[in-house]
């Protein structure tokens, strides 16, 4: 299959990345060449193959439901581009 410009703009929307109109052309070309490469997988019949979901021979551990951390609000806010005392600040969402 091939990706057209509209499809790419839609995917970019899903990924929350604005794409410069001037770059859509070259992006389309690059992505199509990558997908052509990826689609070699269609040569293989995988009807009877179980998908691999973990490469580890172990299941997830369980742990006690205990608080092991906390009270680090200032540390968490320290890297925020914009904060107001105890909150992250974003552009207005509701009127």
């Amino acid at each position: 299959m091939s990706l057209d410009k509209e499809k790419i703009k839609h995917v970019a929307k899903l990924a929350r990345i604005s794409v410069d109109e001037a770059k859509v052309e070259s992006l389309t070309k690059d992505l199509n060449s990558i997908f052509k490469f990826i689609e070699q997988l269609n040569e293989l019949n995988t009807d009877k193959v179980e998908p691999l979901t973990s490469i580890l021979n172990q299941s997830l551990r369980s742990r006690k439901d205990e608080i092991s951390d906390g009270k680090i609000r200032d540390k968490i806010l320290k890297n925020s581009p914009k904060e107001n005392e105890e909150f992250f600040v974003v552009p207005k969402v509701v009127e």
Binding site: R16, I17, S18, I76, N79, S80, P81, K82, F88, V90, P91, K92, V93
Partner: peptide, 19 residues
């Protein structure tokens, strides 16, 4: 762009700020 790292000052609403 909310909790850490670079934030663009271009977006006029939340979605545009993300993008």
């Amino acid at each position: 762009g909310v909790r850490y790292g670079y934030r663009s000052n271009q977006g006029k609403d939340l979605i545009e700020m993300y993008e």
